[in-house]
């Protein structure tokens, strides 16, 4: 969500501290995923103070069979920076989806999206990431 490990760690700790305080006062919400929702809003708040990427028309390419070999060449930090520079709610959708801990209904609930919106955000995100991969990295045949 942030593309910055130090900030992410700070937010994680702040979120847990706040949760512990609420637990001590018996004020923990009953709704599922409230902790993740809380962390998400903290991340969005934190990134508001960062330098914002200018809104650009980003290229989109069809996903190619060689994409996995292109992705293998990336550093995790590059992916984190790419996702964190995406506008919200696309950033939240991509983060939650690729975390691979939630099913789509849970993502819809957490990100407050409709199925059609989540579908579009993921599809466009994939195509934009593929275009970025094509620009940054040469294609290798997928074995």
């Amino acid at each position: 969500m942030l593309g910055d490990a130090r900030k992410a760690q700070e937010i994680f700790q702040t979120t847990l501290r706040e949760a512990a305080l609420r637990a001590a006062h018996g004020e923990l919400p009953k709704e599922p995923f409230w902790l993740f929702r809380d962390a998400r809003w903290r991340c969005l708040e934190a990134s508001e103070t960062d330098l914002q990427a200018e809104p650009l028309e980003i290229d989109e390419h069809d996903i190619v069979p060689e994409a996995p070999s292109q992705i293998e060449q990336l550093e995790p930090a590059q992916l984190a920076i790419w996702i964190s520079s995406a506008p919200d709610p696309q950033r939240t959708a991509l983060t939650l989806f690729y975390l691979d801990e939630f099913d789509y209904r849970e993502i819809l609930d957490l990100a407050e999206l409709k199925l059609s919106e989540l579908s579009r955000l993921l599809a466009v995100g994939r195509r934009q990431f593929q275009a970025w991969l094509d620009a940054m990295l040469p294609k290798k045949p997928n074995v």
Binding site: F12, I63, V64, P68, I71, P76, A80, Y98, D100, Q130
Partner: peptide, 29 residues
């Protein structure tokens, strides 16, 4: 084929996400 490409793309990205190192004090949670 389009869906097959999407699945292998997603698996590769998720693999990259899993390789992100998590600080030990967070990992213990």
């Amino acid at each position: 084929d389009e869906f097959a490409n999407q699945q292998s793309f997603d698996q590769a990205v998720a693999g990259l996400v899993r390789s992100i190192p998590i600080p030990p004090d967070i990992a213990e949670w």
